[in-house]
Amino acid sequence: MVHNLHVRRLPAGEAEVGRLLDSLAGPDDVLWPVAHWPRMRLDRALGTGAVGGHGPVRYHVGAYVPGRCVRFRFTAPRGFDGFHEFSTVPLGPDETELRHLLRIRLRTPAWLTWPLLWRPLHDALIEDSLDRAERAVRGDVRAPARWSPYVRLLRAFIGPRGSARPR
């Protein structure tokens, strides 16, 4: 079982951070790092039952509580049995934790592709997303995420959005 959690404490109330979450896959998406990663697309507005994905990753929205949580159930790549979700956790009137949790049971061939391909790319994408959230509420990012040399190498092989960016 893979349990992969990314967390960012943001200096904003839950409603403000929740608006970032609610913008996912919409025309004014503030959260997803579209400049350097495949855009998250859904067949309709963000809501339970919407179907879509990003790049070769496919899923449907299994649960959605506006401003609080959205859970996506994987349908591809092959061997991923589970979900990924964004959620907000209020820590006080002016501080909220934005979380991204991925929980999957790996089946063939994902037991090999997850550690070699998907995990490093996933981790880089999610940290870029959390940077966008922080920039949206603070105006800047205190400690921007950096892609590892391995992520840069993988990105060099995935096409137009795959070239390493200067960091």
Rank of each mutant, 00 (worst) to 15 (best):
M1K: 13
M1D: 13
V2K: 06
N4A: 13
N4R: 05
N4D: 15
L5Q: 12
H6V: 10
R8H: 06
R9G: 02
R9N: 14
A12L: 01
A15N: 04
V17G: 05
G18W: 01
G18K: 01
R19F: 05
L20Q: 12
L20M: 04
D22Q: 05
S23H: 05
A25S: 14
P27H: 11
V30A: 06
L31A: 07
V34K: 04
A35T: 13
A35W: 12
W37P: 07
P38H: 11
L42N: 07
L42W: 00
A45P: 04
L46V: 08
G49N: 08
G49W: 08
A50W: 06
A50C: 13
V51R: 10
V51C: 08
G52L: 00
G53S: 05
V57H: 11
Y59R: 07
H60E: 08
V61L: 09
V61Y: 01
G62H: 10
P66M: 12
R68G: 00
C69L: 15
V70I: 06
F72T: 04
F74I: 10
T75F: 00
T75A: 04
P77Q: 12
P77D: 07
R78V: 13
R78S: 14
R78C: 04
G79Q: 01
F83C: 12
F83I: 12
F83Q: 11
F83Y: 15
E85T: 09
E85W: 11
E85C: 13
S87E: 05
T88C: 14
V89W: 13
G92P: 09
P93A: 13
P93Y: 02
E95M: 03
E95L: 03
T96P: 04
L98W: 01
L98V: 08
R99W: 05
H100R: 10
L101E: 14
L101M: 12
L102S: 11
R103K: 10
I104T: 08
T108K: 14
A110R: 05
W114S: 03
L116I: 07
L116K: 01
W118K: 06
W118S: 02
R119Y: 07
R119G: 02
R119D: 01
P120Y: 07
P120K: 02
H122N: 15
D123L: 04
D123W: 03
L125C: 14
I126T: 10
E127I: 03
D128H: 15
S129W: 11
A133T: 03
E134T: 00
E134D: 04
R135W: 04
V137A: 06
V137C: 10
V137D: 00
R138V: 05
R138Y: 00
R138G: 00
G139W: 00
G139L: 03
G139N: 02
D140P: 11
D140G: 00
V141R: 08
V141F: 02
V141W: 02
R142D: 14
P144C: 02
P144R: 07
P149K: 01
Y150S: 02
V151L: 03
R152G: 05
R152L: 04
L153F: 10
R155L: 14
R155V: 09
A156Y: 00
F157H: 13
F157Y: 11
R161L: 15
R161E: 14
G162Q: 03
G162V: 06
G162N: 06
S163K: 15
A164K: 06
